[in-house]
Design a protein around this nucleic acid. Structure first.
Lengths: 138, 138
DNA sequence: CCTACCATCTGTAGCGACTACAGACTCAAG
DNA sequence: CTTGAGTCTGTAGTCGCTACAGATGGTAGG
């Protein structure tokens, strides 16, 4: 019940594993509230640690900062917003799956080419061939 | 054997499915050679189509522009460089696989949360909980 | 010949999500 | 009193484009 222990930006950075410059950046773009100052130094409290932790975890899940902003708004809103949160997450999940599919396509082509290269009976370079190798003729 | 048909940037753009602005950008950063001019207009030939095609295919495989630059250098170099090409591709393949692994981790967490949300017996919002929901208490 | 219209030109600024300085200051310990 | 760590502001860089604005070029129709 003591007054929330005030911490400085360095401590906030340590507790959230978030770069100091990034914290100030989040403040600049309005993702974190402008904190009060002790002297000239930013002074943070318990709920700043929570909020920034939330942001960082959402970022780790690949949400964009705009999506995070929306999530923060919804999180403050109470249970009515659970549906909206679900929709945001579901749509983001689709994005993630699409990106995985893209990367898998790349992986397949690359792996095939490297394998062909290892087999090494090709007259030219199978990797360069895969990229359309007439460039060499220049 | 006719002199290589000279084309303008618009035609190059169409043939390579590469944005005009992007072509000029590639020229600016030295990825494409500075072309001669017909009047004030850039004039491209057969090997520009090939080179830009190569660049675009490499980009589709996720190579960075620096890697593409390296590949172009190696492609010009003859067969001695095949090993180096292989190494570049193999290392890029590792990157791609790492990114896939990252995304899969995200996918799992997101899918789990959305599923928990659908089950809908949680008192709060399982999605927000997954992100560390004390933010709501603010 | 004039006009309309398209393509092309140069140069600059914006995106997203940071990251990296430079150069000033504050504050506490030795 | 000095040293060193921490913090401050402000600006510019990263990557790979993309999007303008505003000036020309070349061509076709009237």
């Amino acid at each position: 019940m003591a007054a929330t222990a005030a911490i400085q930006i360095g401590e906030l950075s340590r507790r959230t594993s978030c770069n100091i410059e990034t914290i100030r950046y989040y403040e600049r773009i309005g993702l974190l509230p402008v904190p009060p100052r002790r002297g000239r130094y930013r002074s943070y409290g318990r709920e700043d640690v929570a909020r920034l932790g939330f942001v960082r975890r959402a970022r780790e899940l690949g949400f964009t900062l705009d999506e995070v902003r929306a999530l923060l708004g919804l999180a403050a809103g109470g249970q009515a917003s659970c549906t909206e949160v679900r929709e945001l997450a579901a749509s983001h999940l689709q994005d993630v799956r699409a990106r995985i599919a893209d990367l898998r396509r790349m992986e397949r082509v690359l792996a095939d080419s490297v394998r062909a290269c290892d087999a090494g009976q090709d007259p030219g370079c199978p990797l360069l061939d895969a990229l359309g190798a007439e460039v060499r003729a220049a």
